[in-house]
């Protein structure tokens, strides 16, 4: 069975190298940095194939996610799977962060 990531040979649209360049935003770089740090020899908390397994687990949603949000989801699931933090801790932290970000955005 072809997984959502397995794109080789499928019909697709044109590539416009002038338009399809994109300098990563600072937020995207933070995700990139987290992934690289988790991969590095000091931590070895994740490997490329593990990250891919998590992204491919998105199924059809794989294509709806922007690239770095897929990475972010993979990091979060991997850390849960490895017991680095629990779902409860993540939920609690997200509630706290969300309130902070909403206040920050209102003040923008």
């Amino acid at each position: 069975m072809r997984g959502p990531q397995d794109l080789g040979g499928l019909p697709a649209g044109p590539v416009d190298p002038a338009v399809h360049e994109h300098v990563p935003t600072h937020w995207e770089k933070r995700i990139d940095a987290m992934m690289m740090l988790l991969f590095d020899p000091k931590r070895r908390l994740a490997r490329v194939d593990e990250s891919r397994r998590m992204q491919e687990a998105l199924g059809e949603d794989y294509h709806k996610y922007p690239y770095y949000e897929r990475w972010l989801q993979a990091i979060s699931w991997l850390m849960l799977e490895k017991g680095v933090f629990s779902q409860e801790e993540l939920d609690e932290k997200q509630r706290e962060v969300r309130a902070r970000l909403e206040a920050e955005r209102r003040g923008m």
Partner: peptide, 8 residues
């Protein structure tokens, strides 16, 4: 999610 994961 990004901020929460990073802070944790």
């Amino acid at each position: 999610l990004e901020t929460a994961v990073r802070e944790l």
